[in-house]
């Protein structure tokens, strides 16, 4: 399994195996490989396996991603390649020590504890388990080729976009920094309404600081949205549709 070695000048900062899970790289703590440096974008690039090849993709970062000195968008990586991000270097190498987890004979079974003892994995066991599941315990998410994308189309009112694809489980309408549908104007509420996606792919509209109306009727409780529904809240009108 290939391994990424993060270096700054000559010191090794971090090592990370690349399994079936992609390694996102950037300054934001949400990334798998976090590089806390102003020269690095919040979501800078990613490294992932595709049909046995190790791929690197730059997310259109401000300062770019370089492989062996060349600025790249999307390339195949091979052992020995040196990836430059800001002043940091990521060296691609083959990892030996992690292979034990994929072959299934890692032999990390700890001695059986008595049931009335505290049966916690110790730190080492937990780390091993995490490595194992992060590396092999997943399947790539396959999305259908033609997926209907739930979309909010702005019919009336002042917002920062005319249309919004609802990709997240939570969508907030308001002036709040976490709002997707950003309302403008002095008196716009921070959080006017919220739309949540449940696991069965239904979308519910719910009240927050305001009670939204759906097709002219104020909702009494969270309500399932259907294609064509018109949501009115805090002076804006949004049409909920499924787009191809």
């Amino acid at each position: 399994m290939p391994k990424l070695v993060l270096k700054f000048e000559n010191s090794v900062l971090k090592e990370m195996a690349v399994g079936s899970k992609e390694v996102s790289i950037g300054r934001s703590p949400e990334n798998v490989l976090v590089i806390d440096n102003p020269a690095v974008s919040h979501y800078h690039a990613r490294v992932f396996n595709e049909e046995g090849r190790l791929m690197l993709e730059d997310f259109g970062s401000m300062n770019g991603t370089f492989v062996n000195g060349q600025r790249v968008k999307m390339v195949t990586l091979k052992p020995g390649d040196s990836v430059g991000i800001g002043k940091h270097t990521i060296v691609v190498s083959e990892s030996r020590d992690l292979d034990g987890f994929t072959s299934g004979n890692g032999g990390s079974k700890p001695a059986a504890p008595k049931i009335n003892e505290t049966v916690m994995l110790d730190t080492k066991e937990r780390r091993e388990f995490l490595q194992k599941v992060a590396a092999v315990g997943e399947s790539a998410q396959v999305s259908p080729a033609r997926l209907k994308i739930p979309t909010l189309v702005v019919r009336k009112g002042r917002t920062n976009q005319r249309e919004y694809s609802l990709n997240d489980k939570l969508t907030v309408v308001g002036k709040s920094s976490m709002a997707t549908v950003k309302l403008k104007g002095w008196f716009a509420p921070k959080a006017a309404a919220q739309i949540t996606r449940r696991d069965d792919q239904t979308y519910y509209i719910g009240a927050a600081d305001k009670v939204p109306s759906v097709n002219g009727v104020p909702i009494a409780h969270p309500t399932i949205l259907k294609s064509g529904d018109i949501i009115a809240v805090a002076g804006v009108e949004l049409e909920f549709v499924f787009r191809d």
Binding site: K21, P29, V34, V133
Partner: peptide
């Protein structure tokens, strides 16, 4: 923050 995640 770079602690691996369990699962996908």
């Amino acid at each position: 923050p770079s602690l691996p995640f369990a699962g996908e």
